[in-house]
Nucleic acid binder design. Structure first.
Lengths: 338, 338
DNA sequence: CTGAAAGCGCTTACAG
DNA sequence: CTGAAAGCGCTTACAG
C-alpha cells in the first residue's frame, strides 16, 4: 500500500493538518514538532500523492509544449530550453507533436490531446487566425513564432521579416544579385510568408528584382525538401548566385545538391539558412544562418504561460526575442582557403 | 466555473453515476438515456477532470521519458516514436532530460523529478548497476540501451557489440587496416564500453592489432567532441585509414576536421557512425552508419512499461531491437565520382 | 500553534 | 438499467 498523510499522522501521533504543514513547509510549526513529523515521514517513506494535491489545488504542475516536429534540431534545442526554464519554476513539461498539420494543431489548441495541464505552449505552423478565434478553453495558451494578427494570446517570436531582410542584405552586400528563396509554401504558413516577405522587401530596397521564378515551394520542412527545391530551381534552367532557405535543414539539403552538381559554395552560390542549428557548424562548408536566441524564447514562453495562471494576468502581447545573423563559410568562404 | 459531472447530471435530470456511465462508454445504458445525457454534455461543454479521475483510479495516463540529451537528433527521433506509440494507448509523454549526468539519472530513476507518472522510460548513460539496485519505487521502469547486468528491469536495446563488429568488419572488408575509435569515455559509460569492445573483438578476429593508441576518449557526445577527438589523433602523429565513431554527430565532427586538414573521405580515411541520423544523409559526404530501428525501440519501450501496470507483469527481460549497417559515401565513396 | 471537518471531481461497489 | 453513498489523498478555511 501507498503511504498517505494519514499514515504519517498516525505514526507521529499528530493530526493530518500538522503533517501537511510540515510537508508544505508552512511556518508556525515548532521545530520539535517538525522534526518529530519528519522522522515519521522518513520512517514510512512517505511521498505526496500529486493527483490528490492537484485535484485539491486545481493545478497540475505540468505545462505542455506542442511542436510541429522533433526531428528538426531547432525544436529539440528549444525543447531543452523550455524544460530548463520550467524546472526553475518546479514545472515539468509534457511534450506533444503535431506534425505541423493544421488539424493536429487545432486539436492541441482546443485541449483535446494533453489535458492534465496548467498551460500550453504551442508552436503552430499551419494554424490560421480563425482557428484560434473560438478557442473555448481556460487553459492559458502561449504561441511560439510570429503571428501577424490580433489574438488574445501572447506570442514569443523574433522579427522574421527583419531577420530575413538581414540575411538577404548580407548576400547583396557580398555582391550577389540573384537570390533564390527556398521554402515557400503552397498552404499559407505564416512563418514562411513572413520570411518570403523579408526576402522580397530587401531585394526591392536594394533595387534588385524579387524574381518569383526564384522562389521554390516545398511540402515539408526537412533536408529532403530543401534538396528537392534546389534541384527544381537548377532543373528549371536558373542559376542564382545565392540561396536563402527557410531553415537550416533545407539549406543543408540544398548544399548537398549543389555539391552533387559540382557547384561550389559560396563561390558559385552562397547559402544562408535560418535557426542556426548545431549541424550547420560542422559541414564541409559551415552555414551562415539567422540565429534566434533559443534560450530566451524558452524562458519567455514559460514565464508568459505561468504568468497567466494567477488572477491578475497581464494583457496578451507580442514578445520579441533577440536574433543575430551568424556569418560562416557558406557566404564568406573558407578563411585562408584559395 | 468548471463544469462537473454533477452539473451535467442536474442538467440532464439523472444521477451522477449515469453521466459517468455515458462518459466512460459503459454498456447497459439505454440509447435514449445515452443521447439525453450526451446532449447535456454538449450543451454545457463538459470535460472530465483528469486529476480527479487519476486520484480515484490511481493512474495518470502519463509516462515519462528521460533522455540524456535532446540536441542529439537520435533522441529527438526516438522521442517522436515514443510519443506515437504512447498515443496509441491513450498515453501522453512527459519529457525529462538528464544531461547524461549520473546524478540526474539517479534522481530520475528514484522518482524525484517527474512524479505524476504511471511509468518511466529511462535512457541512462552513466548510471551504474549499483545505482539501480536499491531503487525504492513502485513506478515501473524500463531502460533504453543495452545493459550488461542483471537487474529486475526490462531493457530495450540493439546488440551494441555485434553492431560495432559489423561496422568494423565493413571497414576491414574494404581493406582498411588502421581503424581508430572515437568516443571512448574516461568514466565508465556502458554503451561506449560495449562499442569499444566490438571494435576490439572484430579487429582481433581479423588478425589486426586493436591499437589502444587509436582510441580517443571524449567528454561529451556531440559534434565538437568528435572534432576534438579527431584532432587529437591526428596531432599525435597517427594517420589511421578509418574511423569508427561512437555516434553520428561525432563522426560528422570528425569529418569536418578531416576536411579542414585536407584529408579525403573515404579515399584517405573512411568513416562510420552510429545511429543513422538524418543529417548524415545530406553532408558533402554522406555517412555510413549503424541504423537502429528507432520506431521499434519506441514501440517496445512503451509496450513494456505499460505491460508492467497490470497485476500479472511479465518477468523482466532484455528485448532486442533490430539494426542494420547502412553503407554510404563515407566508406564506399561517391558512386560515379573519380 | 494544532485539530476536526469539508470538499476538490471523479469511480466503484452496493442496492434496488 | 439507474441511484445514493463512500472514498481516493490531499488542502483550506474555521475553530480552539
Amino acid at each position: 500500500m501507498r503511504v498517505s498523510l494519514k499514515d504519517v499522522a498516525a505514526h507521529a501521533g499528530v493530526s493530518i493538518k500538522t503533517v501537511s504543514n510540515v510537508v508544505n513547509n508552512y511556518q508556525h510549526v515548532t521545530p520539535a514538532m517538525r522534526e518529530r513529523v519528519q522522522r515519521s515521514i522518513d520512517a514510512l517513506g512517505y511521498q505526496p500523492n500529486l493527483a490528490a494535491r492537484h485535484l485539491r489545488k486545481g493545478r497540475t504542475g505540468i505545462i505542455a509544449l506542442a511542436l510541429p516536429e522533433l526531428g528538426n534540431p531547432y525544436f529539440a534545442e528549444l525543447t531543452a530550453s523550455v524544460i530548463d526554464a520550467a524546472s526553475q519554476h518546479d514545472y515539468i513539461v509534457l511534450l506533444d507533436h503535431t506534425g505541423g498539420s493544421r488539424d493536429q494543431e487545432l486539436l492541441v489548441s482546443q485541449g483535446f490531446r494533453a489535458r492534465v495541464i496548467d498551460g500550453l505552449i504551442l508552436s503552430p505552423i499551419e494554424l490560421r487566425t480563425e482557428d484560434l478565434r473560438d478557442r473555448d478553453q481556460d487553459v492559458p495558451l502561449v504561441l511560439l513564432g510570429e503571428r501577424d494578427y490580433d489574438l488574445p494570446y501572447d506570442h514569443i517570436a523574433i522579427d522574421n521579416v527583419a531577420a530575413a531582410r538581414d540575411a538577404v542584405r548580407h548576400l547583396v552586400a557580398l555582391g550577389r544579385r540573384e537570390v533564390a528563396f527556398i521554402g515557400a509554401r503552397r498552404d499559407r504558413s505564416e512563418p514562411a510568408q513572413l520570411r518570403v516577405r523579408g526576402w522580397r522587401e530587401e531585394l526591392t530596397a536594394a533595387g534588385l528584382p524579387a524574381d518569383e521564378g526564384l522562389v521554390a515551394a516545398v511540402d515539408g520542412w526537412g533536408h529532403a525538401d530543401g534538396a528537392r527545391a534546389m534541384r527544381h530551381i537548377l532543373d528549371s534552367g536558373r542559376r542564382p548566385d545565392a540561396v536563402f532557405a527557410y531553415n537550416d535543414p533545407m539549406a543543408i539539403g540544398a548544399m548537398r545538391v549543389l555539391h552533387e552538381r559540382g557547384l561550389r559554395v559560396p563561390e558559385d552560390i552562397a547559402v544562408v539558412g535560418f535557426d542556426d542549428v548545431i549541424e550547420g557548424r560542422f559541414g564541409a562548408v559551415t552555414l551562415t544562418s539567422v540565429s534566434p536566441d533559443k534560450a530566451a524564447i524558452g524562458r519567455l514562453a514559460v514565464e508568459s504561460v505561468l504568468a497567466r495562471l494567477g488572477n491578475d494576468a497581464p494583457e496578451p502581447r507580442r514578445i520579441w526575442a533577440d536574433y543575430q545573423l551568424v556569418e560562416r563559410e557558406s557566404t564568406l568562404g573558407r578563411p585562408g582557403a584559395a
